[in-house]
Simulated assay, not measured.
Amino acid sequence: RVIASWRNKWPLLSAYFRYPEAIRKPIYTTNAVEAVHRQFRKLTKTKGAFPNEDSLLKLLYVGINKASEKWTMPIQNWGQAVSQFSIYFEGRLDDIIKL
């Protein structure tokens, strides 16, 4: 079943390999996402309930701002990755990053 699933979905899965390694690594690296989820779980696990959605969002906003102060590890080869992103996704970064 697993092999059949891979074969059926290979056109979607293989799209990843069309990009150079400078782009592939930031795409498949999930450590940053997992760190954010871990912070969110730490913030919410001791709370029983929230009076409304805004109170939850405020807690997460303040918590993530505080946690981001500790995130000092730079992404390896980020300059090269940004250059590659700007080539493969032309125009999508223009409003955010001046190249």
Rank of each mutant, 00 (worst) to 15 (best):
G91V: 07
E34S: 03
G79K: 11
P74K: 04
S5V: 10
I3R: 15
F17H: 08
A15N: 12
A81W: 00
I96F: 08
K58L: 03
L59R: 06
N77D: 03
R7S: 06
I3V: 07
W10Q: 07
I96C: 11
K98P: 08
I97L: 15
Q39H: 08
E21W: 14
Y88E: 05
D94L: 05
V82W: 02
T30R: 09
K45Q: 13
T30M: 08
I64C: 05
N8A: 14
I75Q: 14
I96W: 04
S55G: 01
I23C: 15
N31R: 04
T72K: 05
I97C: 03
I87V: 09
K25N: 14
G63R: 02
A49W: 15
A35I: 09
Y16P: 06
S14C: 11
K66T: 12
V82R: 15
T29N: 15
P26L: 08
L60T: 08
P74G: 13
L99V: 07
Q80W: 09
P51W: 01
F17W: 07
K98Y: 04
K9N: 15
L43I: 05
D94M: 05
P20Y: 10
E34G: 07
S86Q: 06
R92L: 11
I87M: 12
F85Y: 10
N77S: 06
R38E: 11
F89K: 09
P26F: 00
P11T: 00
N77L: 03
T29P: 01
R38L: 02
I87C: 07
E21A: 04
L60Q: 00
I3P: 01
T44L: 09
N8E: 13
I64Y: 04
T29A: 13
D95T: 15
Q39I: 09
L13I: 15
L60G: 04
G79R: 02
K70A: 15
W71M: 14
K58G: 11
L56G: 00
A35H: 08
L99Y: 09
K47R: 13
K58C: 11
H37E: 00
E90H: 14
T30G: 04
G48V: 11
Q39P: 03
V2G: 07
N31M: 06
R24D: 01
Y19C: 11
T46A: 14
L56P: 02
Y61I: 07
R38T: 02
N65C: 11
L93M: 11
G79C: 05
S83E: 07
N8D: 12
P51E: 02
A35M: 03
E21S: 06
W71I: 00
V36Q: 06
Y28A: 13
K45I: 04
S14H: 04
V33T: 05
K9Y: 14
Y61M: 01
K98A: 10
L56E: 09
N31E: 09
S68M: 10
K98E: 13
